[in-house]
Design a protein around this nucleic acid. Structure first.
Length: 421
DNA sequence: CTATAACTCTCAA
DNA sequence: CTAACGTTGAGAGTTATAG
């Protein structure tokens, strides 16, 4: 069965351009949380040689020289645009896996007699017209190959024009094309693996495709063995249409400025617990463990480093924000040491069980806050996260992250819509 | 010793 | 003027621990 992988071109930048057409044709980057580093670059910025993950302060001079526009990330906007894009694409197949904010797989079972390249072009046109986002389409027999075909479509390899169907390539054509692509481009082959494979003279997609799967399994892993199968048109990865419940929920953030006192850390930890616990309740799970960690800036090698973490077991699994907060703050108090410049804190909820069948604690004296949590979730659902929160989260919140260049909430706030005057 | 828990490493977007 | 470098999740493999 053919599989299509549709991926937005520098998605965050494209979202910003939909609402601010002046950005069209100009070099634009979108920065990570805290305005830290580049997480999306327009073609013009890539042209200037700016790599993914470049810290903003390191490209400042280049930005001034070439008039690069830098924007803080506006996830509310991107999530909204993503939903619209996915809705349009879902019309092209009954089988859709939303793989990430900017890409999805479509199962094309029974489409064998179609002109798939024309079908891909139709998707592109409609997403562009209805949502405003440019996308590329890769089509092949397996997910791994569809990802690779998408890469070829983006780079305009093998004479493709934003849509690439490997089904059209003869075996010699494939062989020739794959010989020109580095192994590192393959889905699942990251920095480490590329390096090791290249050392063993497996430097291209073609070389890995032809490598002996059993040997690779022995010397590397099952995962890479599966990748080889997928490169040879043998599908090992199902289309996962319904996202399974999470097995862990993490919430962490870097601070806008260094934090030294336990009061600020406590407020931050309480806030992160509130975010994580809300997600936990939305999937009807209970957490049995709460992990807290704090961290100094690892990039600042000359200042004292400290990155402790602690996992706190609960006597009874829970989804109660207040109870989880107490556990996390108890842990924080144990790992906190004064005199360090903390840059980041985080929490994780672990060891999940089903909220429908809780394992009760015979001696528990914890009060039941189920109704309170329901009310809190409803209020925050209507009026926005943080409308109703625990006192532990604090009020001043001087530790909050920086977002100095955010675009307006074009799709979520009436009062932020730019008016034509 | 075995089974499992806990932790570490790698990868992805 | 200086300092300024993301977040979330999964899975495999390894090590520690309990019974």
């Amino acid at each position: 069965m053919p599989i299509a992988l549709i991926d937005g071109n520098n998605f965050y930048v494209s979202c910003e351009r939909v609402f601010n057409p002046k950005l069209e044709g100009r070099p634009v980057v979108v920065l990570s949380n805290n305005d830290g580093m580049a997480v999306a670059r327009s073609a013009e910025v890539k042209e200037l040689g700016v790599k993914m993950g470049t810290p903003w302060f390191k490209m400042r001079d280049l930005a001034r020289k070439h008039g690069i526009v830098a924007l803080s990330s506006n996830y509310a906007l991107y999530a909204d645009m993503s939903n619209r894009m996915m809705a349009v694409l879902s019309q092209y197949s009954p089988d859709q896996e939303v793989y990430s904010i900017d890409e999805c797989f479509l199962g094309l079972e029974g489409f064998g007699n179609f002109d798939l390249v024309a079908y891909g072009q139709a998707m592109r046109r409609q997403v562009r017209q209805w949502v405003g986002i440019p996308v590329c389409v890769g089509i092949a027999e397996t997910k791994t190959l569809a990802k690779l075909a998408n890469h070829c479509a983006k780079k305009a390899l093998a004479g493709t024009n934003s849509v690439c169907d490997f089904g059209r390539l003869s075996e010699p054509e494939r062989s020739r094309l794959f010989s020109t692509i580095e192994v590192g481009e393959i889905w699942g082959v990251g920095r480490k693996l590329s390096e090791q494979l290249t050392h063993r003279d497996i430097a291209t997609v073609e070389a890995l495709r032809k490598a002996d799967a059993k040997t690779i399994r022995r010397e590397f892993s099952v995962v890479l063995e599966r990748t080889i199968a997928e490169l040879n048109d043998i599908s090992c990865m199902e289309l996962e249409e319904a996202a399974p419940n999470k097995q862990q929920i993490i919430s962490s953030r870097s601070f806008g400025n260094y934090v030294y006192d336990i009061e600020s850390l406590s407020q931050a930890v309480a806030s992160y617990i509130a975010i994580a616990a809300e997600k936990l309740r939305s999937q009807a799970s209970l957490a049995g463990l709460v992990q807290v960690y704090i961290r100094t800036n690892p990039h600042k090698a000359d200042s004292p480093q400290y990155q402790p973490s602690l996992t706190v077991p609960l006597s009874q699994a829970s989804d109660d924000t207040l109870l989880l907060t107490r556990a996390a703050l108890w842990g924080l108090k144990r790992i906190y040491r004064p005199g360090f410049a903390y840059q980041k804190a985080g929490v994780a909820l672990l060891n999940f069980s089903d909220a429908a069948t809780p394992q009760m604690d015979l001696f528990s004296k914890a009060r039941d806050n189920t109704r309170l949590m329901e009310v809190m979730d409803r209020i925050n659902g209507i009026w926005g996260r943080g409308t109703l929160h625990s006192a532990a989260e604090g009020v001043q919140q001087g530790w909050r992250m920086k977002r100095e260049k955010v675009s307006p909430g074009y799709t979520t706030h009436w009062d932020q819509l730019p008016l034509v005057t």
